[in-house]
Write a protein that binds this DNA or RNA. Structure first.
Lengths: 134, 134
DNA sequence: ATTGGTGCAAAGCTTTTGCAGTAGC
DNA sequence: GCTACTGCAAAAGCTTTGCACCAAT
């Protein structure tokens, strides 16, 4: 009937909260909890993540195909509109950055093209600082 | 050594040119060619699509996870730096638009963050005009 | 005659699901 | 004592890969 509190949910949520700044895959969470001697089955992780996403507490990012999805704890707070994701096509590293102007730019595009760009769903592809060098 | 011309490649490319105005999945292509009595193995379709994407003739879109990727014929036209791709997450429609300011914005990001964004590889996700209405 | 391309089936990957057992309430 | 939740393994679904054969050059 109502949602039950379990140890598994508790440790999954705590894991997300502690490493909230970064993204984590379901595997990351599973591995982390195993190392901390609080193992949780991967199926359970996926099931709970789906719930957390539905409730809005956690955001799911599909970085690229054939690569595990990334999850990020948002908490009850408003999702940050000026937070963006960069994926380096050379080294595969995922970076984040904040940029208010880009969000404004998207506002203009909404006005001009009628298309609302969700910066949180969009991943920018390119080459990172380290890989640009040569 | 050099690339060989085969019937399979020919019909796959023709199919993309004629029918991928929106976008097609590998399955769409396979099914279409089977109906046209020119069956091509799915593995061959995937292999050739990967090449076409690499060469820039075809663009690959990941609409959402756990859903087949979509491919679209772009042609051999010169890559335009101010040409961008939008994918509506509601209806799946792919739109294009031109915007010089956005490209400039990417230049600023390169300066500030050191990350070079490839606008041609990046797909913007959001909600299109038709689907915004509710 | 080389050797790149194809077809088939099996494997690879992430994610989902079925089911029996477990543990909140 | 209900019944939601968990763990395990198997299934699902898209894509890739190994391998033997075929066909383009």
């Amino acid at each position: 009937m109502s949602e039950r509190n379990t140890k598994q949910k508790s440790v999954i949520l705590k894991c997300l909260q502690e490493k909230s700044g970064d993204h984590m895959t379901a595997d990351d969470i599973t591995d982390y909890l195993k190392k901390k001697k609080m193992p949780v089955a991967k199926a359970t992780v996926y099931r709970y993540l789906a719930r957390l996403e539905e409730s809005g507490l956690v955001k799911k990012y599909i970085i690229s195909e054939q690569q595990p999805a990334c999850y990020q704890y948002l908490g009850g707070s408003e999702p940050c509109l000026s937070h963006f994701h960069l994926m380096c096509q050379v080294c595969g590293q995922i970076e984040h950055f904040e940029n208010d102007n880009l969000q404004k730019m998207f506002g203009d595009i909404k006005t001009n093209e009628g298309f609302f760009i969700d910066g949180r769903k969009t991943v920018f592809y390119g080459t990172c600082r380290n890989c640009t060098g040569d």
